[in-house]
Amino acid sequence: MLLARNLKRIAARSPWLYRINSGSCNGCDVELATTACIPRYDVERLGCQYCGSPRHADIVLITGPLNRHVKDAVLRLWEEIPEPKVTVAVGVCPISGGIFRESYAVCAPVDQYLPVDVNVPGCPPRPQAIIEGVAKAIEIWRARL
Protein backbone atom coordinates (compact mmCIF):
# COMPACT_ATOMS: atom_id res chain seq x y z
CA MET A 1 0.00 0.00 0.00
CA LEU A 2 2.84 2.32 0.96
CA LEU A 3 4.62 1.40 -2.22
CA ALA A 4 1.52 1.99 -4.29
CA ARG A 5 1.10 5.43 -2.74
CA ASN A 6 4.71 6.41 -3.33
CA LEU A 7 4.97 4.80 -6.74
CA LYS A 8 4.05 8.04 -8.47
CA ARG A 9 6.92 9.80 -6.73
CA ILE A 10 9.48 7.00 -7.08
CA ALA A 11 8.88 6.18 -10.75
CA ALA A 12 11.35 7.85 -13.09
CA ARG A 13 8.68 8.24 -15.80
CA SER A 14 9.77 8.02 -19.38
CA PRO A 15 8.28 10.54 -21.77
CA TRP A 16 7.27 9.29 -25.18
CA LEU A 17 7.98 11.38 -28.21
CA TYR A 18 5.61 11.99 -31.06
CA ARG A 19 6.55 13.60 -34.32
CA ILE A 20 4.23 15.85 -36.33
CA ASN A 21 5.29 16.83 -39.82
CA SER A 22 3.42 20.00 -40.64
CA GLY A 23 4.65 20.30 -44.22
CA SER A 24 8.36 20.02 -43.55
CA CYS A 25 10.88 19.53 -46.34
CA ASN A 26 11.92 16.34 -44.48
CA GLY A 27 15.31 17.73 -43.51
CA CYS A 28 14.33 18.05 -39.86
CA ASP A 29 12.50 14.72 -40.00
CA VAL A 30 15.66 13.02 -41.23
CA GLU A 31 17.55 14.60 -38.34
CA LEU A 32 14.86 13.40 -35.93
CA ALA A 33 15.11 9.89 -37.34
CA THR A 34 18.90 10.13 -37.06
CA THR A 35 18.61 11.23 -33.44
CA ALA A 36 16.46 8.25 -32.61
CA CYS A 37 17.72 5.43 -34.81
CA ILE A 38 21.46 5.89 -35.07
CA PRO A 39 23.35 4.52 -32.06
CA ARG A 40 25.79 7.43 -32.28
CA TYR A 41 23.17 9.92 -31.03
CA ASP A 42 20.58 7.62 -29.42
CA VAL A 43 17.95 9.85 -27.84
CA GLU A 44 16.60 6.80 -25.98
CA ARG A 45 19.38 7.24 -23.43
CA LEU A 46 17.26 10.07 -22.00
CA GLY A 47 14.48 7.59 -21.33
CA CYS A 48 12.29 8.63 -24.22
CA GLN A 49 11.02 6.69 -27.17
CA TYR A 50 9.14 7.50 -30.33
CA CYS A 51 5.59 6.24 -30.37
CA GLY A 52 3.17 5.77 -33.23
CA SER A 53 0.02 7.14 -31.68
CA PRO A 54 -0.58 10.70 -30.46
CA ARG A 55 -2.59 9.30 -27.55
CA HIS A 56 0.52 7.73 -26.06
CA ALA A 57 2.71 10.79 -26.45
CA ASP A 58 4.10 13.19 -23.86
CA ILE A 59 6.48 15.31 -25.88
CA VAL A 60 5.47 16.40 -29.35
CA LEU A 61 8.06 17.49 -31.90
CA ILE A 62 6.70 19.69 -34.67
CA THR A 63 8.62 20.20 -37.89
CA GLY A 64 7.65 22.26 -40.91
CA PRO A 65 6.05 25.67 -41.43
CA LEU A 66 2.42 24.54 -40.89
CA ASN A 67 1.13 24.47 -44.44
CA ARG A 68 -2.40 25.69 -44.98
CA HIS A 69 -3.34 22.22 -46.26
CA VAL A 70 -2.25 20.33 -43.16
CA LYS A 71 -3.08 22.99 -40.59
CA ASP A 72 -6.41 21.49 -39.47
CA ALA A 73 -4.96 17.97 -39.37
CA VAL A 74 -1.99 19.11 -37.28
CA LEU A 75 -4.16 21.01 -34.81
CA ARG A 76 -6.53 18.02 -34.50
CA LEU A 77 -3.60 15.68 -33.94
CA TRP A 78 -2.12 18.01 -31.35
CA GLU A 79 -5.46 18.12 -29.50
CA GLU A 80 -5.43 14.32 -29.31
CA ILE A 81 -2.24 14.27 -27.25
CA PRO A 82 -3.16 14.04 -23.56
CA GLU A 83 -2.07 16.68 -21.05
CA PRO A 84 0.50 17.29 -19.68
CA LYS A 85 2.33 17.62 -22.99
CA VAL A 86 5.36 19.59 -24.02
CA THR A 87 5.61 20.99 -27.52
CA VAL A 88 8.98 21.34 -29.20
CA ALA A 89 9.36 23.27 -32.45
CA VAL A 90 12.20 21.70 -34.43
CA GLY A 91 13.86 23.79 -37.13
CA VAL A 92 13.35 27.44 -38.01
CA CYS A 93 10.18 26.77 -40.05
CA PRO A 94 7.75 26.18 -37.14
CA ILE A 95 9.46 28.87 -35.07
CA SER A 96 9.30 31.75 -37.54
CA GLY A 97 8.61 30.35 -40.99
CA GLY A 98 12.26 30.43 -42.04
CA ILE A 99 12.60 30.97 -45.76
CA PHE A 100 8.86 30.36 -46.23
CA ARG A 101 7.90 33.24 -43.98
CA GLU A 102 5.07 35.43 -45.25
CA SER A 103 4.12 32.93 -47.96
CA TYR A 104 0.40 32.61 -48.73
CA ALA A 105 0.63 28.83 -48.31
CA VAL A 106 2.06 28.61 -44.82
CA CYS A 107 0.62 29.54 -41.44
CA ALA A 108 3.95 29.82 -39.61
CA PRO A 109 4.83 30.58 -36.87
CA VAL A 110 3.21 27.62 -35.16
CA ASP A 111 2.92 29.41 -31.81
CA GLN A 112 0.02 31.43 -33.17
CA TYR A 113 -2.09 28.27 -32.99
CA LEU A 114 -0.66 26.15 -30.20
CA PRO A 115 1.53 26.85 -27.18
CA VAL A 116 5.16 25.97 -27.96
CA ASP A 117 7.49 25.33 -25.01
CA VAL A 118 10.93 24.74 -26.51
CA ASN A 119 12.42 26.00 -29.79
CA VAL A 120 15.29 24.28 -31.55
CA PRO A 121 16.48 26.56 -34.38
CA GLY A 122 18.56 25.25 -37.25
CA CYS A 123 17.98 24.37 -40.87
CA PRO A 124 18.01 21.52 -39.97
CA PRO A 125 19.27 21.50 -36.38
CA ARG A 126 22.03 18.98 -35.83
CA PRO A 127 21.11 15.81 -33.86
CA GLN A 128 22.93 17.03 -30.75
CA ALA A 129 20.91 20.26 -30.80
CA ILE A 130 17.71 18.22 -31.01
CA ILE A 131 18.88 16.11 -28.06
CA GLU A 132 19.53 19.35 -26.17
CA GLY A 133 16.01 20.54 -26.96
CA VAL A 134 14.48 17.21 -25.93
CA ALA A 135 16.45 17.34 -22.66
CA LYS A 136 15.01 20.81 -22.00
CA ALA A 137 11.52 19.53 -22.86
CA ILE A 138 11.89 16.61 -20.43
CA GLU A 139 12.77 19.07 -17.65
CA ILE A 140 9.65 21.12 -18.39
CA TRP A 141 7.55 17.95 -18.61
CA ARG A 142 8.79 16.69 -15.24
CA ALA A 143 7.92 20.05 -13.68
CA ARG A 144 4.41 19.87 -15.10
CA LEU A 145 3.59 16.37 -13.84
Binding site: V92, S96, P115, N119, Q128, I130
Partner: peptide, 30 residues
Protein backbone atom coordinates in the same frame (compact mmCIF):
# COMPACT_ATOMS: atom_id res chain seq x y z
CA UNK B 1 15.14 31.88 -35.18
CA UNK B 2 14.80 32.90 -38.81
CA UNK B 3 18.38 32.33 -39.95
CA UNK B 4 18.88 29.17 -42.03
CA UNK B 5 22.65 29.11 -41.38
CA UNK B 6 23.41 29.06 -45.12
CA UNK B 7 26.58 31.12 -44.78
CA UNK B 8 25.70 33.59 -47.54
CA UNK B 9 26.28 36.60 -45.28
CA UNK B 10 29.76 35.50 -44.32
CA UNK B 11 30.59 34.50 -47.91
CA UNK B 12 29.57 37.84 -49.38
CA UNK B 13 30.85 40.09 -46.59
CA UNK B 14 33.79 42.05 -48.07
CA UNK B 15 35.46 42.63 -44.70
CA UNK B 16 34.58 39.47 -42.76
CA UNK B 17 32.61 41.42 -40.14
CA UNK B 18 29.81 38.86 -40.28
CA UNK B 19 31.09 35.51 -39.06
CA UNK B 20 29.43 32.23 -38.25
CA UNK B 21 30.87 30.61 -35.16
CA UNK B 22 30.76 26.91 -34.37
CA UNK B 23 28.34 27.49 -31.48
CA UNK B 24 25.24 25.39 -32.09
CA UNK B 25 23.71 25.52 -28.58
CA UNK B 26 20.68 27.42 -29.79
CA UNK B 27 17.83 25.37 -28.27
CA UNK B 28 15.88 27.62 -25.91
CA UNK B 29 12.60 28.00 -24.05
CA UNK B 30 9.75 29.86 -25.70
Amino acid sequence: NSCVFCGNCEFHCPTGSVHQTTDWHLAHEQ
